[in-house]
Amino acid sequence: MYVIFFMIGISLLLALGFLGAFFWSMRHGQNDDLYTPSIRMLLDDDLTTPAPVSEK
């Protein structure tokens, strides 16, 4: 019976930890823009020209 109370306590602490992490991420803007990072690799254009290869 004591194991059940222990597991309930651990699960409540774990749930409070995840809830705290969620509120921290919302407060610090971690989920402001979810669309742009997923398409960044498609929009990333490298405008620099490669250095010429010298022939010897």
Results as ranks from 00 to 15, higher is better:
M1G: 10
M1C: 05
Y2S: 15
V3S: 11
I4Q: 10
I4P: 01
M7Y: 09
M7P: 11
I8M: 07
I8G: 02
I8Y: 07
G9Y: 05
G9S: 14
I10N: 02
S11W: 11
L12D: 00
L12H: 01
L12N: 09
L12K: 03
L12P: 00
L13R: 03
L13K: 14
L13S: 14
L13F: 15
A15N: 10
A15L: 15
L16Q: 08
G17E: 04
G17W: 09
F18V: 11
G20K: 05
G20Y: 10
A21C: 13
F22N: 05
F23V: 15
W24C: 08
S25Y: 10
M26N: 14
M26G: 08
M26V: 14
R27T: 10
R27C: 08
G29D: 02
Q30W: 13
N31V: 06
N31Q: 04
N31H: 15
D32T: 15
D33L: 03
D33K: 04
D33I: 03
L34S: 04
Y35R: 12
T36L: 03
T36V: 04
T36S: 02
P37F: 00
P37R: 03
P37G: 03
S38I: 11
I39M: 07
R40P: 02
L42C: 03
L43V: 10
L43C: 07
D45I: 04
D46L: 02
D46M: 03
T48Q: 02
T49D: 12
T49P: 00
P50W: 00
P50T: 00
P50H: 03
A51Q: 01
P52C: 00
S54W: 05
E55V: 04
K56V: 00
